[in-house]
Design a binder for these strands. Structure first.
Lengths: 156, 156, 156, 156
DNA sequence: TTTT
DNA sequence: TTTT
């Protein structure tokens, strides 16, 4: 089956830290919100308007651990993935839907420690005092995520 | 702001006809569900599993009219667009979210009349009887959508 | 290094058959030309103009073998990959450059045997005589290419 | 015609300044080399290997002028565009081919003046002394390129 | 609700 | 050299 394509490409900023969930079998996932902005001039008011779109990013296993290690709130990242809408029931038993981006690839555009992130404050102030040669691990890294765990029926 | 990217690329099949909505100012939008499939072999059962993902596609103005004219249920199309999650209140006043793909570009991979669509029955049976030279309007068409209307607060 | 992205997405038609090359170590690659079209209205003459762009697609190993099996001249395919420009010397010792698309993923939009391809004549005429239920293997297939061979210094 | 797709998405660093060319009719284009990197572990030597790929980016008209204004050597940018291979004759009359990326959209990830660019030295040292509120024009900007000039037979 |  |  197939002959279809489901691809998402985002560049945005993390709205929060990467939140990890660990599973019994040894797998894990990381989740974080990612903001993208769209700016246009309103034809009604002739003013510049900015809309922020929030995306729920889900990363798995080793890739999740790498993201947690290097990405913090405010960091900028390129995310490639698939759209997945999960169906769940709220307390009243109504069907609810939640759309996520299941990350298949990523590239860090800034990282926690490289001073390009105004919100990773403690680390950044250390950063700012250090010389450039003292930043050995801050190059962007693009690991290939490996997926070794069930894809469905996540309990959250 | 900006320096961000919000891009979706889909190839899938229409699950229904394009539904048009016309506005007072002369603008319009078309909506249709688009299915993409993901197939993999379950590690638990060793069986082939297919997941279908449904995307809510929204097209505007002339582009919507072209889609309505050429695309029918079952047709295959390439859609490029942006993810947009709209917030609304249900009857109980709870916040609800609905994620759409706002189409910015598309390419028809099959069209209503070209016989590649088992469900566009009446037209297709005509199609099947006609010679190839009698299919003057079935070439794929890729117009550039024009957007001339408010982007927000759509009442549906 | 990295923090970079090199991604190409094409939908086009094969201009020729997939040409396979086998290596001693057991690896192989397949090559084929892919045509994309751009159509616009000339501002000078007000005529419709079509430009065809030819892309040199390179696929590796199992993916190459799947492409060779299912794709023929005229077939339509979605190709995802990376741009790579190889440098070589011509007979006069001048540096020459050749740009290829190294395929990392693909989705068949038509295949050799499915009748959507006017040029795969012999197979197609068989196709046209057979019933729909006699087409067991013509569904689009999207394998994940595996790469098990050197990436560089290909002798052609 | 069409039903095809020719799309390139790059994130990379400028290898040189944007070089502008102005035409009599008032149009212009800007050109610059963009580097992307691919890093992998060689199976032969087990060493990390980095390949740099150079892309010839071509931007037109207003978009070119915005790029020239904000982008310098070393800056990082997201480029979206089309692959185009131009054919030309060398001095010996041999056919030669040159592949370019015709830019249709872009997003600045760093700019000349924002300190994220080691090569824009003079401006950067000023930058480093100034307060954040003194950086009024350094937000990333994503204009929509407009194309108002012939697409072909460029004399370089 | 699509398609193979 | 493809396709419409």
């Amino acid at each position: 089956m197939s002959g279809t394509l489901n691809k998402v490409m985002l560049i945005g900023h993390l709205g929060d830290e990467v939140k990890m969930h660990y599973f019994e079998g040894g797998g894990c996932i990381g989740r974080f919100p990612l903001a993208t902005n769209e700016t246009y001039t309103s034809k009604q008011t002739n003013e510049r308007v900015t809309n922020t779109e929030w995306h729920n990013i889900v990363v798995r296993n080793k890739a999740a651990e790498v993201c947690e290690k290097y990405l913090g709130k405010g960091d900028k990242v390129y995310i490639e993935g698939r759209i997945k809408t999960r169906k769940w029931q709220d307390e009243s038993g109504n069907d609810r839907y939640s759309t996520e981006i299941q990350c298949t690839d990523f590239t860090f555009l800034t990282t926690k420690n490289d001073g390009g992130n105004a919100s990773s404050n403690q680390q950044q102030s250390q950063q700012n005092q250090s010389s450039q040669s003292a930043k050995p691990r801050q190059e962007p890294i693009t690991p290939k995520p490996e997926v070794d765990m069930p894809d469905d029926d996540l309990p959250f």
